[in-house]
């Protein structure tokens, strides 16, 4: 993995973690379930703080998404081939950005009022894309960590056994 990839991945993980935390904090749940009472997590119940943080990390995510896209298409050697995983994540992140942008636009002063149905639908879609991305990433992580690693280990063991018998 190149340094560029490492930095991009690190920023992506940090951004997604804080976006998820501050996104869930838009619902009044951290105070109700006393998570905000845990020392150091009081800010999770401060709606204006989490709202601003959500916007800041959204700026980072949008910047990062555009950076990764343009970087991919401008790479003449095409060192990285697109995988189905990449396509799936791209759809989910695009969904998050589009629904998020519509919600940000709604919050701007002077924007014509959205109907309650549209607001509820946008919020639910935004939440669904977030949950899908989280679960998908988690499943991929588990598969990589255990199944792929196990296969590698098994094949290593097999080659070790082979070399032992050959000797």
């Amino acid at each position: 993995m190149t340094l560029n990839d490492r930095i991009t991945k690190f920023l992506y993980i940090i951004t997604l973690t804080f976006l998820t935390l501050t996104g869930f904090a838009q619902m009044p749940i951290f105070k109700r379930y006393r998570i905000a009472d845990i020392p150091g997590l009081g800010w999770l119940a401060e709606f204006y703080v989490t709202h601003s943080m959500h916007y800041i990390f959204a700026i980072l995510l949008i910047g990062l998404a555009f950076y990764v896209c343009v970087d991919y298409f401008s790479d003449r050697k095409k060192e990285k081939r697109p995988t189905s995983q990449m396509y799936a994540k791209a759809v989910m992140i695009s969904g998050l950005i589009i629904t998020g942008a519509l919600l940000v636009f709604k919050n701007l002063p002077g924007t014509p009022p959205y109907s309650p149905l549209i607001v509820s639908m946008l919020n639910l879609l935004h939440l669904t894309f977030c949950m899908l991305l989280l679960f998908y990433s988690l499943i991929i992580l588990i598969i990589k960590k255990y199944l792929v690693q196990k296969t590698i280990n098994d094949s290593d063991l097999l080659s070790e056994k082979k070399s032992y018998f050959q000797e």
Partner: peptide
């Protein structure tokens, strides 16, 4: 911050 969001794609590109 919402206005700053408009700069994010430009910065990424």
């Amino acid at each position: 911050l919402a206005m700053a969001m408009l700069v994010a794609p430009v910065a990424g590109v």
